[in-house]
Design a protein around this nucleic acid. Structure first.
Length: 281
DNA sequence: AGCCAGGACAAGT
DNA sequence: ACTTGTCATGGC
């Protein structure tokens, strides 16, 4: 059993909005207002006290040298290195984008695991956020490893390895009730576990080339490809457009986003998405 | 009961 | 190159 604790000063930060805004599906709010999630093979509790982010990791499945136990891993996960104040002042040069940012400026784009993000967003297709989370939880409890428990004693399971998921059949995944997405879940795992697949290459490729490579997978179109590049590879220039974003673009940005936003369009996208879903109007 | 959901895809214009 | 119907499932 390994345990670690890290503290970061993070500004601005709204931990709750960051974890619940639809980019991650593995964090659940505890009764005390903190969040418990499974990352890699560790159980993690995250708490915000003012501008301080407190991370507690406990695991029985990791070696002491596992990266999930290092401070750098969590700095990267919560994008502590990104200058959000600078991005916000840039975004506020546009009136409507400024309105979206100021609605929830503490939202940060997480840097999550590529493979888990790919499968999660394959599941997201024409689905609602609540059910995406419950399908992922079911998938993990069936084919992941038990890694610990939440504060209320619920057993928690790691996300299944690609090598495991890729060898399953649609019948094996029937309990997920994932409908027509099931073959694509297996297909995504097969893509990642293929000997020809190199995640690092996706970082070096142009955005368009990376999208097209991901879209070769069944069940991965332009929107899911952009989500994977943004949330699972830290490509902040990827700009996922779903039904909410389509509405936002026609009402708030009929002429498109300002050019100076494009290099970080994915981060801006999170503010717009959250604003459209939660601000009544 | 009926509409919608962080869409993709094939088939039809 | 754009538009439309369809897909499986459950939350609301």
């Amino acid at each position: 059993m390994e345990e670690r604790e890290f503290h970061f000063t993070v500004t601005p930060l709204d931990l709750g909005a960051t974890l619940k805004c639809g980019q991650a599906f593995r964090w659940n709010e505890e009764e005390d207002g903190t969040f418990t999630g499974v990352v890699s093979k560790a159980v993690v509790n995250a708490a915000q006290v003012g501008e301080t982010l407190c991370i507690r990791i406990s695991t029985k499945m990791c070696t002491p040298s596992d990266v999930v136990l290092t401070e750098d891993f969590w700095k990267n996960y919560f994008a502590v290195d990104v200058d959000y104040d600078g991005l916000h002042s840039l975004y506020r040069r546009n009136k409507n984008l400024g309105k979206c940012v100021d609605y929830a400026p503490g939202i940060r784009v997480l840097r999550q695991d590529f493979y888990e993000t790919l499968i999660s967003f394959i599941i997201s297709q024409n689905n609602n956020i609540t059910r995406i989370g419950s399908i992922i939880k079911k998938l993990s409890s069936l084919y992941g490893e038990e890694v610990g428990e939440s504060k209320c004693g619920e057993k928690l399971y790691s996300f299944p390895e690609a090598s495991v998921l890729s060898k399953l059949s649609v019948e094996d995944l029937a309990p997920l009730r994932a409908g027509y997405r099931t073959p694509s879940i297996i297909g995504g795992a097969k893509l990642v576990s293929s000997v020809f697949f190199e995640e690092a290459k996706l970082m070096e490729m142009s955005l368009q080339d990376a999208r097209e490579l991901l879209m070769e997978a069944k069940g991965v179109g332009p929107k899911i490809a952009d989500c994977v590049l943004l949330f699972g590879l830290g490509r902040f220039d990827a700009f996922p457009v779903d039904v909410w974003m389509r509405r936002a673009m026609s009402t708030l940005f009929p002429d498109g986003l300002p050019k100076y936003v494009l290099p970080s369009a994915g981060i801006a996208q999170q503010y717009i998405f959250h604003y459209m879903r939660n601000a009544n109007g």
